[in-house]
Amino acid sequence: MRFKVIINACSPVFLRRVEEVCAFIDAHKTLFRVNHYTDAEALVFYSQEDVEEQLAEKLPFRKIKLIKLKHYQPEPILYALEELEGQNPADLYIFTGDLAGNELAVRFASRMKSSSLVAVEKLDRQQGNMIGSKKVYSGNLLGSFHFIKKPYCLSLARGMNRIETSLPRQKKNINYFDYSTYNDERVPVQCREISKTEEQCFDKAQFVIAVGRGAGNREAVAHLERISRQLGAELGVSRPVVMNAWAPLNRLIGASGNVIAPDICLALAVSGSPPFYYGIENSKLIIAVNTDKEAPLVKAADLVIIDDYKVIIEELCKLIVKSN
């Protein structure tokens, strides 16, 4: 099967996405008929000339097309994909597990009049058909979908497994393309980056305190952030907390935010909606603290305390600080 991966290197965290894609390829080596993720061919979009050499160094694929853009916009990427791949497409394209990956997979497939599936966790071949699996109904159900028309375009689910990747520079065949002069009057007349995504705050977090709507207000969440710092934990929040603007978006845990895998996840006043649980389900130990014993997270946690989270965290803080 001829397959290619599409990477948006305009993102500061693109290497994390590359590691997810490589783990996905390695998990499907038989299906893709490759020995290693390095055998994949990659189309990589980037926007800054100064990272060109860094990209060439870090990307772990034998065949790479490095495609320069003015800045990240889906339109020039789709245009370039159509031009570079339209005549002789691969059988399957793997896009990254982020918003850009979702959009590009769906829109490129639409232009190729082919099948697309977003947030895929697993691929399989059954009776000659390509089947992709993904969570639906907010993570309650797993759906299997039969891809009908090639080239199949899929984006990965958020927070998939990652592997460390490397490939010596001399083993790479790199071709350069320039689409930075692409001109489309429909794309935004002004574009300003307000803040860059920093290295994900949860990447190395081993202890996460997750806070839900039950915290009550912005001040309570701010207080819990201070306690988290004191305990050496990262603070994460559920979607209602972000929606109420009690915490910034980069602290969101869940299907549309950060998917975390710490040793300990202490969930305070979180009801545990399915999209939130998707974000913490890889935690080794989940402790739910809630006054509501019927809260969904109570059934999905390893340990449960039914009590006021404020009292529990204060007491826990005292014990941890005392023992340090």
């Binding site: 099948s115 599936l117 159900l141 759906g143 299997s144 891809f147 009908i148 340990l303 006021d308 007491e315």
Partner: peptide, 25 residues
């Protein structure tokens, strides 16, 4: 396209061990 061919429930349940005591402390 693609066509849904199977749908199964995902079981996320864990032990749910209740920690009990006469006081929060």
């Amino acid at each position: 396209d693609p066509d849904l061919i199977d749908l199964v429930a995902v079981d996320n349940s864990r032990k749910s061990l209740l920690i009990e005591g006469p006081s929060a402390e």
